[in-house]
Design a binder for these strands. Structure first.
Lengths: 186, 186
DNA sequence: ACCTGAACACCGTTCAAGT
DNA sequence: ACCTGAACACCGTTCAAGT
């Protein structure tokens, strides 16, 4: 006699993502998700392999949203203005969803092909914006250097690692300008 | 009747640090530390307020070691060669102690004055190396931009976030060179 | 086919009782 | 003064039993 489904993959991921956005990925528990979708915790194991699988599903959703936010930023202007726009959109996403952004980089046990696909997709807008500016041979290196700077800056900002006074703002502007200038002349 | 002390703050921190270096900070438990120093877990609470306090003590030790490694790098050569040396020493420390490096940035409940002091001390070598190169008014910004790049790069490298093929090495060299060049001309 | 209670092996933490 | 066992409220996860 088939028991009626009280929830779904989609609802579970949405509830988990909402919880992570509010309380952080460290606090994510199967109990909390189960409560939110009104089943008992063991029922979640019919749909997800465990906490790690739920967290990875949240990460996939977050990377999709993040990638979409960057895609939306494909505005007009020069190539280097477009890159600035992407950097700003990147930082804005992280500041708007700080706990979700942190969760995107939480360690998980193993990434499957879907996990890798959404991560790679989020890297494409920057690579496209760099295309008119730098040759294909060095494009990936330059994208990595830019991403390292933006990710590092945003991570330090969100974890309040800038403790020597002053605003972080000018350091972001200066670093970005220096990289854009140096990467073209280098 | 005073009971004999079976352990000490020092021994507990050393055991916890060793555990974190081996298994990562997420796996750190009071039980594991207690086993290592041969007491029962509740005894640890006579010396530390809880898991968070133990983890913060590990972070302090790690930041001290890290700062000392950077101090040691105060070699000869031009200012920008010294900065390159610091960046390389930074990255080398993170690669030599990947789990300890990750643990240094683990979220903890609240930092006390000692926590802040060791973090600030670790930032000084770079600020000193920048002194002959850039005026005091922009030095902190520039240090932050450099640190953001190095930390971001190392974090991505250690979490295997570079998944589009090729070696990370040239991206580090290129980004660092671009920043050093751009920061001086900007 | 999906849901559940009960159970297991863990956590962090508190506290009364020992010496 | 420090250590301990017992206990409490949690975890993640498994599984037999329900419908």
């Amino acid at each position: 006699m088939p028991a009626v489904a009280k929830t779904s993959d989609r609802e579970i991921v949405a509830a988990a993502k909402k919880f992570v956005a509010r309380h952080g990925h460290e606090a994510l528990s199967m109990q909390a998700v189960a409560d939110a979708v009104e089943v008992r915790a063991p029922s979640l194991y019919k749909r997800f392999d465990g906490r790690d699988a739920v967290l990875r599903a949240v990460q996939r959703e977050a990377f999709r949203e993040f990638g979409a936010a960057l895609e939306r930023e494909q505005g007009t202007g020069s190539a280097s203005e477009r890159i600035r726009g992407l950097a700003t959109a990147y930082r804005a996403f992280a500041r708007r969803h700080p706990r979700l952004y942190a969760a995107m980089f939480a360690e998980v046990e193993a990434l499957d092909d879907d996990d890798l696909a959404v991560r790679k997709a989020a890297a494409l807008p920057l690579l496209r914006a760099l295309a008119p500016l730098v040759p294909e041979t060095t494009r990936l290196e330059i994208a990595r250097a830019l991403t390292a700077f933006i990710h590092g800056f945003v991570s330090m900002e969100l974890s309040r690692s800038f403790r020597l006074g002053g605003e972080p703002e000018p350091a972001f502007e200066r670093g970005l300008a220096a990289l854009l200038h140096g990467l073209q002349t280098g």
